[in-house]
């Protein structure tokens, strides 16, 4: 009967050890990596990926905050008004990307053209978009609870080029 500690000791004896240089370099790389991670979390932004801060859902939202949600509404050549599915399978662009670039889109609504192009390319048999509106919905919190339905606001409008 071999006890676990004996087994471990035997393993230790046959272990492939690192030389001083190999070990030193590895420890140094690990320590520098940890340093970069800490630096990223304390001072950097997402730009420093993979050493940026882990800032997903790290913001604090006040009890009386207004929660905004950005979406794109489209008028189609079939005369209907639809919400553009903001994902890769839908219009080929994710909502987070649109939200991150809202300021740029407001300044230059022609950036919305690629949303229409993406939709047309991925769904050639569906009605085409003829007009796009970038809309911000605002939901009001009162004492941490949702108060009433969201208020929509049109931020940018784009007549789609054929």
């Amino acid at each position: 009967m071999v006890t676990q500690s004996q087994e471990e000791r035997r393993g230790e004896q046959t272990a492939v050890r690192l030389g001083p240089v190999g070990k030193g370099v590895r420890v140094l790389v690990a320590v520098v990596g940890i340093g970069l991670l800490i630096n990223g979390s304390v001072r950097a932004s997402d730009d420093a990926w993979p050493f940026g801060p882990m800032s997903q859902y790290a913001g604090s939202v006040a009890d009386d905050a207004s929660i905004t949600f950005t979406r794109i509404s489209a008028v189609t050549d079939a005369g209907t008004t639809v919400d553009v599915p903001l994902n890769i399978e839908g219009a080929g662009v994710a909502r987070a990307e649109i939200e991150a670039r809202t300021g740029e889109i407001v300044k230059d609504p022609s950036l919305l053209q690629q949303v229409a192009d993406g939709w047309a390319r991925k769904h050639p048999d569906k009605p085409k978009y003829v007009k796009l509106e970038l809309i911000r919905d605002t939901t009001q919190l009162v004492k941490g609870r949702v108060e009433g339905p969201p208020t929509p606001e049109v931020l940018a409008t784009w007549e789609v080029r054929k």
Partner: peptide, 18 residues
């Protein structure tokens, strides 16, 4: 750490409406 930093290095995050 990012949650502490996001709240200006305070413990506001867990009581917020995130």
């Amino acid at each position: 750490i990012a949650k502490l930093r996001g709240a200006g290095w305070t413990l506001a995050w867990p009581n917020s409406a995130i």
